[in-house]
Design a protein around this nucleic acid. Structure first.
Lengths: 203, 203
DNA sequence: ATATTAGGTGAACAAATGTTCATAAACCGG
DNA sequence: CCGGTTTATGAACATTTGTTCACCTAATAT
């Protein structure tokens, strides 16, 4: 067994991650990866067990990051609104740290094979349930509007799902503080100005 | 050349669409499709030119549907807020009519090959620009909050991108009217109650 | 009745793909 | 200098994949 991170292995893992993000898992062949690294295909198997195992490690790593992040939020004494803010913050922090892993999390999880696929989907379900808990709290306490639980959970999750794109394909520099502020404002208060809302109601 | 839609061809196109949505384009082989239809692989080529052309037709069809939809909205005399509402409505209408196509639009466009890939990405860019116009109008008129254009455009687009999931994987019955109401409320006004917002400010 | 078209078969193909194996430099701590 | 670990090669492999071709059958329109 090779120790976890020889410099060359780390380099390979980083490049592969990027390439899989760019081309997609299925479209990225072992020969593509080898060519990118400048060596022969067979050498890959000195670093990893299989293509499948490669994807698995990326996905479950980042998945657990999100879990431990949201667990801390749930255990906090924050109000629902503050928890939701913390959730946006978590998403931006993790995405800025590991943008390509987050990209895989969004796009490539379906390439997992059984039984890992089932395990992943279950784990993702657990994460969604944790988000649901925050929203449930907010609605019950009257802090949030009385939305349909499933719809609003999906809407909130979806609102932060595109962030990885900002950090990967969008080459310009990103200001995470501003991003967090804007996204939080959108999720908490929507796009319409309160004054404008009133004037519409009056009309 | 076969005429556009013999009954068997239509049946094949429908089943293929579903299967590609379920397994992903790359993971769906011609033999998979044939087996699902209960005939041999070679027969597929009596209906379509190639696997590639199959994906292209699905994607550009639905893409143009979205374009003609948003064009009507832009040409209308609606206020920015009403245009945004109409955009949500458009998304729900198209997604409820063609849920699997919308699924492909979200997940499988990257499997297009050049030069179609470039054309698709350009076209998608044009669509995003049209959304941007609505938001720009709203901000300029003071109806919307003064958000960063790129961030808010992505956030809005992202908020409606998950709907297909509701119609494909989520087997329970969907009430499109309620979905539209809730999603519109979320995008326009966010999750937090205005009263709650005030009480937080006061505290 | 005949010619055309829609629907279908089975074999074959070249190319691409993930993986294995035996082998060999190169590097490095002792 | 030695022995182990790291990094690399190249050939070979069994499968899988998209596609083609010659050929067949049944319906349908003229």
């Amino acid at each position: 067994m090779s120790k976890n991170h020889s410099p060359r292995k780390k380099q390979f893992l980083d490049e592969s991650l990027k390439m899989i993000h760019e081309k997609g898992y299925k479209a990225t062949t072992m020969r593509d990866l080898a060519e990118r690294m400048g060596f022969e295909v067979s050498n890959i198997y000195n670093f990893i067990e299989s293509k499948e195992a490669l994807l698995e490690s990326y996905l479950f790593q980042i998945s657990e990051d999100f879990h431990s992040g949201i667990d801390h939020i749930l255990e906090s004494s924050y109000s629902p609104t503050e928890k939701l803010k913390a959730l946006v913050s978590l998403n931006i922090r993790l995405t800025s740290t590991k943008p390509y892993q987050v990209g895989l999390l969004v796009n490539e999880w379906r390439n997992l094979k059984e039984p890992k696929l089932t395990r992943f989907v279950e784990r993702r379900g657990e994460y969604e349930d944790k988000v649901r808990i925050i929203i449930r709290e907010g609605i019950d306490s009257g802090e949030f509007r009385p939305f349909d639980m499933d719809i609003i959970t999906h809407a909130v999750l979806s609102s932060v799902r595109w962030i990885y794109y900002w950090y990967t394909d969008h080459s310009e520099e990103v200001n995470p503080v501003e991003l967090e502020k804007q996204l939080t404002e959108f999720i908490l208060s929507g796009v319409v100005r309160p004054e404008a809302k009133n004037s519409i109601k009056r009309t």
